[in-house]
Design a protein around this nucleic acid. Structure first.
Length: 243
DNA sequence: TCCCAGGGGCCGA
DNA sequence: TCGGCCCATGGG
C-alpha cells in the first residue's frame, strides 16, 4: 500500500467521517450535527439551494477561517440573500456589507456576483476549465465546488494539504497545484467519497496538530513524518547541549 | 500587539 | 513563469 493511502487509513480510523461540506439548513436534523455536518451520509447536497450554498461557502472561505464564513452565511440567509437570483439582484455594496465578517468583503462580493452569473448558465453542465475562467475562482475554489457541490472527482489541494504532505516528505516545496493533484489522485481510488473525506481529514489534522507551529508530539502521523522526526532530534540535541 | 485563517488577482522582472 | 504585494475581518 502506498504512503498516501496509508495516511488516509490512519486519519479515517482515528478521526472518523467528517461529514463535509456543512450545510446551514441541515443543522440539528436527524443524523446531522449542530453545525450542519452530515457525518454518516455522502448523499448531500440534495437541492439546488444546498448546492449553491456550498459554492458560496467555497468562495467566502478563501484565506479565511470557517467561523467567519458561517457568520456571513447566516447574514445572507437572514436577509433572504442566499440564492443565485438574490445575489444577482443585490447591490454589490449591500452584498459586501452582508459578508463583511468573512474578510476581503469587497472582493468577495464581486466574486459572488461573477460566480452567480456563471452558475445560472452552467449549473446543469459544469466544467472545470470554464469554472476557472470565472473571475475570483482559482484551482482550489474550483475543485471545492466541483467536489463538494457537484460530486465530481477532483481532489482539493489547500494550505493544509500542502503543509502536511511537505512536512511528511511526500512532495517538494515547488510542486504545482496540478502536479500535486495528480500525485494524490494517482495514489488513491477515484471515488467521490474518498476525495471528500480525505481533504476534510487533512483540514482537521492541519487545524488541530499540523499547525503553522506544529504540535508534533500529539500528531497521528509522527511515526511517518520526517518533519516530526527532525523536530524531535532538534529537541533532543538542544536538551543535551550544555549551556 | 501579533499571528493566522479551508486564496486569488495583478504586476513587474 | 514566478515572486511579491494587496485585499480585510475576527479569534487566540
Amino acid at each position: 500500500m502506498n504512503s498516501i493511502r496509508k495516511i488516509y487509513n490512519i486519519l479515517i480510523k482515528e478521526f472518523k467521517e467528517q461529514g463535509w461540506w456543512p450545510i446551514s439548513s441541515l443543522k440539528n436534523k436527524e443524523g446531522i450535527d449542530e453545525n450542519g455536518y452530515h457525518h454518516k451520509s455522502y448523499y448531500y447536497p440534495e437541492t439546488d439551494e444546498q448546492i449553491f450554498e456550498i459554492c458560496v461557502g467555497a468562495i467566502l472561505t478563501q484565506n479565511t477561517s470557517w467561523k467567519n464564513v458561517e457568520k456571513a452565511i447566516t447574514n445572507l440567509k437572514q436577509n433572504n440573500s442566499l440564492s443565485v437570483n438574490s445575489i444577482l439582484e443585490l447591490n454589490q455594496n449591500k452584498l459586501a456589507e452582508l459578508i463583511k465578517s468573512s474578510g476581503y468583503h469587497n472582493q468577495k462580493a464581486r466574486k459572488l456576483k461573477e460566480f452567480a452569473k456563471f452558475y445560472i448558465k452552467n449549473k446543469n453542465n459544469i466544467h472545470r476549465e470554464e469554472l476557472l475562467r470565472v473571475w475570483g475562482i482559482g484551482p482550489e475554489t474550483a475543485d471545492s465546488i466541483l467536489l463538494y457541490a457537484f460530486r465530481k472527482e477532483y481532489f482539493v489541494i489547500d494550505t493544509y494539504t500542502k503543509r502536511i504532505f511537505l512536512r511528511i516528505g511526500l512532495c517538494s516545496q515547488k510542486i504545482s497545484y496540478n502536479e500535486f493533484q495528480s500525485l494524490i489522485q494517482n495514489s488513491i481510488k477515484k471515488d467521490y467519497k474518498i476525495y471528500n473525506e480525505y481533504h476534510a481529514l487533512l483540514v482537521k489534522l492541519g487545524k488541530e496538530t499540523c499547525k503553522t507551529k506544529p504540535l508534533c508530539f500529539k500528531c497521528l502521523l509522527k511515526s511517518t513524518c520526517s518533519f516530526s522526526k527532525n523536530s524531535k532530534l532538534l529537541l533532543k540535541n538542544s536538551k543535551n547541549r550544555k549551556v
